[in-house]
Design a protein around this nucleic acid. Structure first.
Lengths: 331, 331
DNA sequence: CTGAAAGCGCTTACAG
DNA sequence: CTGAAAGCGCTTACAG
């Protein structure tokens, strides 16, 4: 493994000269530049991020820790973060916490030890502890879910899915639904409580009774959503709101197993436009979130926070759109 | 940001003592251990991976670069790699090359500069250049796709999807298909050529004519698969083999738009059991790959290669299973 | 049982 | 325009 020393030796210069030239110092003699460049190329030299990072106390790497890499919202957001990062000269290292607080903590630790330049995080709960990172001087921007109470403890980009859930339920009711079941994720998750709130408010606004028993909290898994939906169907609902596309897989499985189908007698609203939702009946009400923009905005916030650590904490909320599914243009 | 120096000062010992104790050196006085531990905890000290990595010339981090994070095969494999890595004390940093050779090259560079302990890679093409990494002493294990010709240039874990494709097509033919179209990915990709080979061999074995025009290569995208399928349907096929679940979204979209449906008149075989495939008709022939095991085996190979750099290059092939879709147990 | 010292691979004022 | 030197945060023989 070639080091700066090897390059210096081969080019017949001091290591400081190699460093300067490779970092584009303008006041270097063209011949020297030539020699150094050639030597570096011959040796396949790539500067060690360890040596460099240690010395400059800054890395050109971000960590991005998402709660579920299978969620199309997060794959889209990941692209947004990556594009903003790479335009600014940063690379992004991804961690998947899998909605598991232990795994998440492990990624936070690794990122801290690696002294990354910043982190974008989708916290598994509002009480995730990022003080260790912040004390290390590593800025954290949250995405999709805030940290702490109100106001949020860090910069954060959210999507207003409360309003979207309200609109979706209002639409179901306008189409004739009277008993709307809700299959949703974990209680601890911000997005869950927001969407349930929107659901409840819509029922109230429509003058319909609110039955807490029609809201089923799960662990986000396909099978849990299937079971929850099966029970709701047995107990009698004429519409379903399912708060993620993965859970919708389970919900639709339960619908099929019950011998029912989506249509005027059983309406469905679902979140996230995963590619496969393009195959669903056009009757379905679909809540689309600006996934790419969610990540891009988080990236921009991180950039801004890196540039100025002392600026006030910011909170940005993006809008989700509610519509019927259209022909997919998603990858 | 606390350093080992701060801890030493607070505990009233030398930094070498701090280092030893925090690394579990047994010959330390209990009182000293106490003091050092307390000081470290008070300061929220986490050793810098930069300092440590520079000194020991070894990192406890792997890089995993996959070609498409949306592919359920790779999300499953990622879990396998992570579990093996973390059991051995490594963390995994993920990069998504998105089937883009430029992005891939960038991740290879970053991993090299970071001096990761090893890499698991799904190369975007057999000609990806990993010599820079290998020259830096960073072992590379390939997953899903080999590098170089035969024998492969690196350790590699593959899935025998050639045989699986053969079996799937044989099954379609047994059910009555005579003109089987194939919608597949990019020509440069190993898995594409393997599956097309299996498809072709099955037709030959069944005594059916082989029409190269029935094989449509795409760029893996939903819309490309949709267009390719639409054309195949117009030209007349009575069965389809689609070599990834994402492309199957497009294929099924085209089927619906053509006013056709999957059944005895138009059979379908597809690869990868994405969660949503559980919603498909039970008639569909499904090729399931051992995703988790693919990653776990790659992780084990990397571990073994790290332990002994000079062992002969190994190539492991796992088996895919062909069946009808069953109720999903996937997350 | 613990400390002082060297050195991992870099960058950056500081001389010259 | 270039080199020598210091130092970033660690670990690890080597003394004592």
């Amino acid at each position: 493994m070639a080091t700066i020393k090897d390059v210096a030796q081969r080019a017949g210069v001091a290591i400081s000269t190699v460093s300067r030239i490779l970092n584009g110092d303008p006041r270097a003699r063209p011949e020297t530049v030539q020699r150094v460049r050639a030597a570096a190329a011959d040796l396949g030299y790539a500067p060690s991020a360890l040596g460099r990072g240690l010395r400059t106390r800054s890395q050109s790497v971000w960590a991005l820790v998402v709660a579920d890499i299978e969620n199309p919202l997060f794959t889209g957001a990941t692209r947004g973060v990556e594009d903003v990062a790479s335009a600014a000269g940063y690379s992004v290292l991804l961690g998947n916490s899998d909605e598991d607080a232990v795994k998440e903590q492990e990624y936070l630790r690794v990122a801290g030890r690696m002294r990354v330049a910043g982190m974008v995080l989708t916290p598994t709960s509002p009480r995730v502890d990022v003080t260790a990172l912040r004390d290390s001087g590593i800025p954290v921007v949250c995405m999709d879910r805030p940290l702490g109470g109100r106001p949020p403890a860090t910069d954060v980009v959210l999507v207003d899915t409360r309003t979207a859930a309200h609109q979706a339920v209002t639409r179901l009711v306008a189409e004739g639904a009277r008993r709307v079941g809700c299959v949703t994720g974990a209680r601890r998750t911000f997005t869950t409580t927001e969407r349930v709130a929107g659901y409840t408010e819509a029922l109230v606004d429509a003058g319909l009774p609110v039955d807490p028993d029609l809201v089923r909290y799960t662990d986000f898994r396909v099978d849990s959503a299937r079971d929850a939906t099966a029970r709701l169907l047995r107990e009698g609902v004429d519409a379903l709101v399912v708060t993620s596309s993965l859970m919708t897989v389970g919900a639709l499985g339960a619908v099929a197993e019950a011998g029912r189908r989506i249509g005027p007698g059983l309406r469905l609203a679902t979140f996230d436009d995963a590619p496969w939702t393009s195959l669903l009946s056009p009757d379905i009400v679909l809540v689309s979130q600006p996934a790419y923009e969610l990540g891009a905005e988080a990236g921009r916030m991180l950039l801004s926070r890196i540039a100025d650590a002392d600026q006030p904490v910011r909170s940005v909320t993006l809008t989700a759109t509610v519509g019927s599914r259209t022909r997919s243009t998603v990858r």
